[in-house]
Amino acid sequence: MTAKMKSVVVDQAKGRWELRDRPVPQVGPNDVLVRVRACAICGTDLWLSDGVLSFRDFPIVPGHEAAGEVVAVGEGVTKREVGDRVGVFMTQKMCGVCDFCHEEHPNSFVTAANCASPTLTGVTVDGGHAEYVAVDAGGTVLLPDAVSYEQAAPIICAGYTVWAGLRRAEPKPGARVAVSGIGGLGHLAVQYAKAAGFHVIALTHSPDKKDLALELGADEVVSDGASLKAAGGADVLLHTNSSHAAVADAMNGLKPWGKVVLMGIGTDELALPALALTSNSYQVIGSAHNTIEHLVEALDFVARGEVRTLVETFPKERAEEAHAKAGAGEVRFKAVITY
């Protein structure tokens, strides 16, 4: 193994994604060293590199949608071995000593928000946009053999998010599931909802995405809440885009006792129709990564060929190009950098 590796480094807010030589990380107790083969760009990566979110000082190495193979294991590791194909997700481990950790919650995105000192890959520690990353073994998931690294990487966060959100909503058999926003999250949400056997309505304001949504499995495509209502309404609304302004409009098509699942992170405020919320007994649910079992399930759908990620791949030498295109919304739908 070489002493140096290539890694993406961001020196300052809104800085370029520079490919640089850095030392290969050391493997500590309970850690595994992963030779990264592919790492997708998440919207959170863009916010971190732009300084919109800040959890540590620059320079940073982003990336929490990484896939590769284990090449070394640290002392105490029993659940991973050299040669394992793994995905590396964000919530690597909790501190274990704060009040939240003493409540013994399962590892999820709620851990990231409530643990006093969580270890978050690509957020509080160096991430997966590098040839190697050392992480706690508990921050990895085994990949099915049938799933390529390029296809696995976006599922580690984006696919995980939408499948966990659908599971959180607990739709009944035969439910009508609407997906608001056909992008990095939404194009996967349509497929997961269809693969799970639900009637799927895609909600998009972009005419050029109508045919694509139908190809991905949507039974119908509508443009707003009024047309959603006219089409028969929805029992569950999966809101996947980064703007909350569209939620209230889409809720015009929500059936009584319907559920809204928020999973796209936005900086705008969320305004809800209070009368409709109360009189229809709606539920508004926030959801992200809800236990590792949902990630395993999300990957299994890909392995069975029922879900596929639409990706544009870039070699590591074009990391800044991938970053720029993803930031400009010019990738349909996930940028994946290969290492």
Results as ranks from 00 to 15, higher is better:
1 M>W: 12
1 M>P: 10
3 A>V: 07
5 M>E: 08
7 S>I: 15
12 Q>G: 05
14 K>R: 14
16 R>K: 14
19 L>E: 11
22 R>K: 15
22 R>H: 07
24 V>F: 05
29 P>S: 14
31 D>T: 03
34 V>P: 04
39 C>H: 01
40 A>T: 14
42 C>R: 02
43 G>I: 10
45 D>E: 09
47 W>D: 09
54 S>M: 09
56 R>K: 07
64 H>Y: 13
67 A>L: 05
68 G>L: 04
70 V>K: 00
71 V>N: 02
72 A>F: 08
73 V>D: 00
73 V>K: 01
77 V>F: 06
78 T>Y: 00
78 T>S: 01
81 E>W: 00
81 E>F: 00
85 R>C: 00
87 G>R: 08
88 V>C: 01
89 F>Y: 15
95 C>K: 14
99 D>I: 02
107 N>V: 15
119 T>K: 06
122 G>A: 04
130 A>V: 13
131 E>S: 06
135 V>F: 05
137 A>C: 05
138 G>E: 04
141 V>L: 01
144 P>M: 08
146 A>M: 07
147 V>K: 08
148 S>P: 02
149 Y>K: 09
150 E>P: 01
150 E>N: 03
151 Q>D: 09
151 Q>H: 10
151 Q>C: 04
162 V>H: 05
165 G>C: 08
174 G>D: 06
178 A>R: 11
181 G>R: 13
182 I>Q: 06
183 G>E: 07
186 G>L: 11
186 G>Q: 10
188 L>I: 05
188 L>C: 04
193 A>I: 13
201 I>K: 07
203 L>I: 15
203 L>N: 11
205 H>I: 13
205 H>G: 13
206 S>N: 15
207 P>I: 15
208 D>H: 15
213 A>R: 11
215 E>M: 05
218 A>G: 02
223 S>H: 13
227 S>M: 10
228 L>S: 05
232 G>W: 00
236 V>Q: 03
237 L>H: 12
239 H>G: 04
241 N>I: 12
241 N>S: 06
252 N>M: 10
254 L>C: 10
262 L>I: 09
264 G>K: 12
264 G>T: 11
270 L>Q: 07
273 P>K: 13
284 V>G: 02
289 H>P: 00
290 N>G: 00
295 L>M: 09
296 V>Y: 07
313 T>E: 04
322 A>I: 12
323 H>Q: 13
328 A>C: 05
329 G>C: 02
332 R>N: 13
336 V>P: 04
338 T>C: 01
